[in-house]
Amino acid sequence: MDVMDRIRDAVETTPVVIFMKGTPQFPQCGFSSRAAAALSACGQEFGYVNVLADPEIFENLPRFANWPTFPQIYINGELVGGCDITLELYEKGELKKLVEDAAAANAKEA
């Protein structure tokens, strides 16, 4: 599969997914670490892609949604933002709602 298709597949089949440096357990960058921690705190399952383990995705993700930096958080196939936006939404209580709604919609479909 072409790398853009792989990225599209990841964001469309996983309701909440973070492309990050490292993993939620072993993040390799402060921004990725904080964004993954905010998602974890929302209490729902989420997927992750370690961009350091996949050089092709690392190279091409910035042009997928025209967003230059990592991490990138997608909910229901749409880019929500990077670390700053994720933390800001978390602090406002909006991230939890987005994540819960995505999980509920996915459970209904399954």
Partner: peptide, 10 residues
């Protein structure tokens, strides 16, 4: 919206 604001800065 926030995401658009960040895009404007980028």
């Amino acid at each position: 919206p926030l995401i658009k604001r960040h895009r404007m800065v980028y």
